[in-house]
Design a protein around this nucleic acid. Structure first.
Length: 570
RNA sequence: CGGGGCGUAGCGCAGCCUGGUAGCGCACCUGCCUUGGGCGCAGGGGGUCGGGCGUUCAAAUCGCCCCGCCCCGACCA
């Protein structure tokens, strides 16, 4: 294609509203334009990249025997009411009414619709397994869209669903997806890791996320370089760093002391001159309507996910100040477990074996010292704590790192949730009605694009992997008015096309600087510069990612590039 | 939904405090010039100053209300 005929509105300056790198560069590179909060126009370049991503996804899905469908984005309320998610999804679901007042919604995901197809048609175990997928627009009324295409209200997702007769079948479908996802992300040129994830309200048994490390990400991943352990922070486990100060020796009794206006762990640590680890953090929580006292080491954070899982609670929240006062007789900042009878007490495992610690006295402005778990109060122990910097791998003690990541894919075993709620059964060998076991698997198309940009961007702009770049090569005649340069450029361009290379000819009447800057900005992997070297019969090939430049003869350039490009796409 | 910020030409911003002619850079158009890293010179076009109501002789500027966008938090199969 000829650049002079295309709409590639690049910008010299960063638009003020863009904060994260991928957002800035997508706008500057002329890939996207914003229409509203969390709603974007995908212009020519973004669309080209996304079509390539979709092509890879489609090939790999088809390769595991998945069948592509296209389901409606507009859904009647009924199917969602059947599964119970009409209410569960709350404000995250876009809802509307038709002219007769009938309730509809825009699909956030398609378990219900897929299940509704399956239950009408699947009757025998002989029809199983099935894997069905679609690549389709999803709608979510995000409370806070942000970070360009990373968190939006309308986005394209590849979602697939597996239907199996039994758990072994589900395991096989799940494994097929895991392998296919690895091939997809490899082919898209991403560096990623898979992590164990929380199954959340979906009620599944196993779940993995595919994560790309990035400052722009919103998820935290805990990973160990040495052992390969990796988990979502919500689920990660670790050995805590040992407390820097030993507990006081002796079988001491709790003793109240005055701590005027010292409420936070930090303030009490300063006041006592002891590290935060010498304190017990007491958090009053409400789990499914009942008050619970959660105890942690002073420097640790409660993981609400683990807390909810430990208590098998659906809904968890911090208690209101009035509730704390009612249950414990003091305000937050002076609370502790000693003498508490009215609340269930759960403690993090990091408190086992500790003694003579400091905690609130349940009397405003007073704390207790010499409080020993299991002696001065009784608690149930669970892993409740969020992994923190400085923690080590739970089995080997190897160091752990925590970093921000973007979730680009998620696979999980759904189990029978939808089969049960929506009545999806088949007859088994013995002619007995058996519920079908399901899996659900998603990939965010825009997130692959954004993650690739985040991963490889440099000071000059985007640096796309060959497989998903909007063009693979740009041919740049330095001076378009020069007939010889133009002829050579057109010749290379034509040959590249013939070799199946996705090539762009920058035939604009612009200064070389402008063309080079634009080519770098939009991230085309290879640039052929047709300029002064032509006098010797040569052109230059510049590799965007490495900056490496090589001089080759005009006749050799297309073949050399085609080889590189085909190798990169394998 | 809580906290903060912003809204003036396509983009980036100044002007607002202290009311009176709407301005700068980039981009765009025309001509000349230039052609290896966002080139130079000259001329030019483009604005309901987010919207409404109010105060005033007079509002981009002051007041009230609303809308939109961004950031932090809450939330996030």
């Amino acid at each position: 294609m000829l650049w002079s005929k295309l709409f590639i509105p690049t910008l010299r300056e960063n638009p003020a509203e863009a904060e994260v790198v991928s957002h800035q560069l997508l706008l500057r590179g002329g890939y996207i334009r914003q229409l509203g909060a969390g709603i974007y126009n995908y212009l020519f370049l973004a669309n080209r990249s996304m079509l390539k991503i979709i092509g890879i996804v489609r090939e790999e899905m088809n390769a595991i025997g998945a069948q592509e469908m296209l389901l409606p984005a507009l859904n009647p309320a009924e199917v969602w009411q059947e599964s119970g998610r009409w209410d569960l999804m709350g404000d995250n679901m876009f809802r509307l009414k038709d002219r007769f007042g009938r309730p509809l919604c825009l699909g956030m995901t398609h378990e219900e619709v897929m299940t509704s197809i399956a239950r009408g048609e699947l009757r025998s175990y002989k029809q199983l397994p099935q894997i069905w997928y679609q690549i389709q627009t999803k709608f979510r009324d995000e409370p806070r869209p942000k970070s360009g295409l990373l968190r939006v209200r309308q986005f394209i997702m590849k979602d697939s669903y597996s239907f199996d007769l039994d758990a072994q079948g589900l395991d096989a479908s799940y494994e097929k997806h895991r392998a296919a996802y690895c091939r997809i992300f490899d082919r898209c040129g991403l560096e990623y890791i898979t992590v164990e994830a929380d199954s959340g309200a979906m009620g599944g048994s196993a779940s993995q996320e595919f994560m790309v490390r990035s400052q722009a990400g919103e998820d935290y991943v805990v990973a160990c370089k040495e052992t390969g352990y990796a988990a979502n922070l919500e689920k990660a486990v670790s050995r805590p760093a040992p407390p820097p100060a030993a507990d006081p020796e002796g079988d001491l009794d709790p003793e109240e002391f005055h701590t005027p206006n010292r409420k936070t762990i930090e303030e009490v640590a300063d006041f006592t001159g002891l590290p935060r680890t010498s304190q017990m953090k007491s958090l009053v929580m409400v789990a499914d309507g009942k008050g619970v006292l959660a105890l942690l080491r002073g420097d640790h954070q409660l993981s609400e996910t683990k807390f909810a899982a430990a208590l098998k609670a659906q809904e968890v929240r911090p208690a209101h100040p009035e509730e704390m006062r009612e249950w414990l007789g003091a305000d937050a900042g002076s609370l502790g477990p000693v003498g508490v009878k009215s609340l269930r007490i759960v403690a993090d495992l990091a408190l086992t074996g500790r003694k003579n610690m400091i905690c609130g006295a349940n009397r405003d402005d007073y704390h207790l010292r010499n409080v020993t778990p299991d002696e001065d109060f009784q608690a149930e122990y669970f892993d409740l704590r969020q992994v923190a910097d400085g923690d080590t791998e739970i089995e080997t003690g190897a160091p752990l790192q925590i970093h921000k990541s973007v979730e680009i894919g998620h696979i999980f075993k759904l189990g029978y949730k939808y089969s049960h709620s929506m009545g999806l059964n088949v007859l088994n060998h013995d002619g007995v009605e058996t519920p079908v076991i399901m899996g659900s698997y998603g990939i965010g198309i825009e997130r692959i694009l954004s993650a690739a940009i985040e991963l490889y961007a440099d000071k000059n702009g985007i640096s796309m992997p060959v497989s998903i770049a909007p063009f693979e090569v740009v041919v740049t005649p330095v001076k378009i008015g020069d007939a010889a340069l133009r002829r050579a450029a057109e010749e290379i361009y034509g040959k590249l096309q013939a070799l199946g290379v996705d090539v762009l000819l920058d035939d604009r009447d612009e200064s070389p600087g402008v063309k080079f800057k634009d080519a770098d900005l939009i991230g085309i992997p290879y640039r052929v510069t047709v300029g002064k070297k032509l006098a010797q019969g040569n052109v230059e090939i510049a590799e965007r990612r490495s900056g490496a430049v090589r001089e080759v003869q005009v006749a050799e350039a297309p073949g050399w590039l085609a080889e590189k490009i085909h190798a990169a796409k394998k």
